[in-house]
Design a protein around this nucleic acid. Structure first.
Lengths: 231, 231
DNA sequence: AGAATGCTTCGATGGGGATCGAACCATGAA
DNA sequence: TTCATGGTTCGATCCCCATCGAAGCATTCT
């Protein structure tokens, strides 16, 4: 019965409301200090410190000390992906509606998933990429890769593909969207695209939240760049 | 800060060792009775009953009463997939080695992931399918689909594809393998293939465990049916 | 009918852990 | 140096919840 990795350990880590709030806040992808996270979770500094220590020991968080601040981040994209999957389970059984905040609809249309885009628009982008044969299943880890025409496309949009290959991180990853229940693009490319969108000024991130607002100007350009066969 | 679904609720559900053991046991895909699960988790029937109730209310389990028995199952394939992802996180930081049982290597080579195959061989099968262009990214939910040649292939192997389409379940799904850290095939087709392999007598499931033993005869046939470019 | 098995509910117990106040280190500013 | 700010460690408190015994339903067998 004791087969496989100890799932209860991380379950317990995520299971505490304060820690869950911390993790949710870090799903924004931003590095936050201990006091910021304490405020986010609604607890004092002391307890936050204890939680952060446990999350680190559990391998979910990493710490970067900078001056007298300590910045915390999710330890990797796979943590973000798994948390998103858990949100999928939580959203299933109506456990969402217990506290469906005013920002909830905004979250569904567009949000940040650790370091890439998620929500309605992100799913449409993913669909568009694969319907034009820019994305294909490959031998790569993660099973997803760019085709030759796809490489041309993203480089044409200003993504430094060669630079991305330098890191050990897979270029393309599928991430299951909890609101849409379909895949969107993660991985190094997903992260790079989000950066490019911001550089173009197509989207604006809401302060201290995962919510992303797409300008009307941005909508036009995204729809043009990633046409959907559903329209 | 309270954005998104309540991740802590399910985290707490998975976080208790007894419940985690119950969930792990159900990852075998078999429907188990309350007393079987109690034994599996090392607790009495009363406490098991309380845990099972909570897991049901949390939407992770479903119950089917049959006579004076109550059979429990994971409420869906997505639960299995998410648990597998959590195992991925747990396995990362060496938290496995705390109790790396004797069956652990066997688990890594081949095991059942709720209703389909996982482990080394399952990953090789996935690779083989896509390298021969039987699997492709599609518009489908989950983003994975069979090509025309792929449909011919699996029907030729005796899979009732038309029957599978009757259910609302997606045919193809990618599931991230915790031991290999690469995708293997889930979804209705993944489940159907496991059934076919068993019908052929190529594998034997270990009693009361997720472990699957592949006979030498089975190895030959699987390697022939799913040649890998890596060999 | 009575007896046995599978499972649940109730009540009481106990322990683990989340929380905060206070004191303690580290870094940067005056 | 002295003070202020960001974080951690320590100790004490307290509450939630896992656990089990005992009693109660349901179902099936004889």
């Amino acid at each position: 019965m004791k087969d496989g990795p100890d799932i209860a350990r991380i379950g317990a880590l995520i299971g505490d409301p304060a820690r869950a709030n911390i993790l949710s806040a870090l799903m924004s992808g931003k590095a936050l200090t201990a006091t910021e996270l304490a405020a986010e979770a609604g607890i004092t500094g002391q307890t936050a410190s204890s939680h952060l220590k446990k999350l680190q020991e559990g391998g979910l968080l990493v710490q970067a000390k900078q001056g007298r601040h300590r910045y915390f981040t999710l330890s990797g994209p796979d943590v973000g992906t798994t948390l998103e999957a858990l949100m999928g389970l939580a959203a299933r059984k109506g456990h969402l509606r217990t506290r469906t905040g005013p920002r909830d609809p905004a979250m569904r249309t567009s949000r940040v998933c650790y370091d890439h885009l998620a929500g309605d628009m992100a799913v449409r982008i993913f669909d568009s990429l694969q319907s034009r044969d820019f994305l294909k299943i490959t031998q790569d880890k993660g099973g997803l890769g760019l085709t030759a025409s796809g490489e041309d496309f993203v480089t044409g949009f200003g993504v430094d593909l060669a630079g991305l290959r330098l890191s050990r991180r897979p270029i393309c990853r599928a991430c299951l969207d909890w609101s849409e229940r379909r895949n969107h693009l993660a991985g190094a490319l997903g992260a790079a695209l989000l950066v490019r969108f911001q550089e173009e000024g197509w989207l604006r991130r809401e302060k201290d939240s995962r919510v992303v607002h797409i300008s009307s100007h941005g909508h036009e350009n995204l729809n043009r760049l990633f046409p959907s066969s559903l329209d």
